[in-house]
């Protein structure tokens, strides 16, 4: 329902336009679908590299956020919820991080996503960084959980752009399983 994003000729256009969302919930409170939706706040939108940096440079780094906060960076038109049409048949690749690493890993992931480094066509929906009490979680969401060659490619790129040691565990979870 929002107007298209204008990209002046001198800016570097991205392959996709994105929305950045923020959410925070009170620890201990059960997250129902309704309050998850209500807690999602749209921070901004961008369609060029310059517009991304203008927004990003004003934000608190993920590691400095309070516990139970999330940044959600999704392609425009895709809401960061399992129920969204683009996510329904999808899943997410999950990396659990010890405290203190989230900001750097998140930035590397975001730059790879915006720069189209995953090379999986339309498959990427977005990415989430979740700040929790004892650990932080970074995930990449894709459209088709059943497409194993794509999920393998996402996993390889994820490992490479975050410089993860080869023994790092990367869990894949379908949204369908999460909904149950």
């Amino acid at each position: 329902s929002l107007a298209p994003i204008d990209v002046p000729a001198w800016e570097h256009k991205l392959q996709y336009a994105y929305c950045l969302w923020f959410s925070r919930r009170s620890p201990g409170k059960q997250a129902s679908l309704q309050n998850y939706d209500q807690n999602l706040k749209l921070i901004g939108r961008f369609a060029s590299v310059e517009q991304f940096w203008a927004l990003y440079s004003h934000l608190v780094r993920p590691s400095d956020l309070q516990s139970h906060s999330d940044f959600h960076l999704f392609k425009i038109g895709i809401k960061p919820m399992w129920e969204d049409e683009a996510n329904q048949r999808g899943g997410k690749l999950i990396l659990r991080l010890r405290k203190g690493l989230a900001s750097r890993c998140w930035e590397n992931l975001v730059l790879a996503m915006l720069g189209e480094q995953f090379m999986v066509g339309e498959e990427i929906c977005g990415a989430v960084v979740s700040i929790r009490y004892q650990e932080d979680i970074i995930s990449v969401w894709n459209k088709t959980a059943s497409d194993s060659s794509t999920t393998a490619r996402i996993r390889d790129t994820f490992r490479r752009v975050l410089n993860l040691p080869p023994n790092t565990v990367l869990e894949y979870k379908t949204h369908n399983d999460s909904l149950k």
Partner: peptide, 21 residues
Amino acid sequence: GTRIVYERAFLMQLRNSPIAR
């Protein structure tokens, strides 16, 4: 059509462009 691909180093360079600040 062609996809718009950017390497990390190039994106980092644009971090300091006037509009991005």
